[in-house]
């Protein structure tokens, strides 16, 4: 359990570090932050960030999955699910 928690944080932090340059309003990033409504990031930029995550973790995240995630937490969870699947 502590392991997963640790890893969870790493993915969360990685995503936050990729989002920070686009966080123009200086919103505090939490698992509940909504990418589109809170951060006002357009859908293509979200896809581009996901591409960085894919290359970072060497996994593929389908566009379909991304359109179903709204918050940072949901994106973190989706990456964990895929990591497990592709491991």
């Amino acid at each position: 359990m502590p392991d997963i928690q640790e890893d969870d944080d790493l993915v969360f932090h990685k995503i936050c570090s990729l989002l920070e340059p686009l966080n123009e309003k200086g919103v505090k990033l939490t698992r509940d932050t909504d990418l589109i409504t809170d951060l006002e990031i357009d859908s293509v930029s979200v896809l581009d960030i996901v591409m960085d995550i894919e290359d970072n973790y060497d996994l593929s995240i389908p566009v379909n999955t991304i359109s179903e995630t709204r918050t940072i937490g949901e994106l973190v969870d989706a990456i964990h699910a895929i990591k497990k699947e592709q491991a």
Binding site: L47, M51, S60, I61, P62, V63, N64
Partner: peptide
């Protein structure tokens, strides 16, 4: 087209 197909789509 990808969306219409419903298939998994990877960029």
């Amino acid at each position: 087209g990808c969306q219409l197909s419903g298939a998994q789509t990877i960029r």
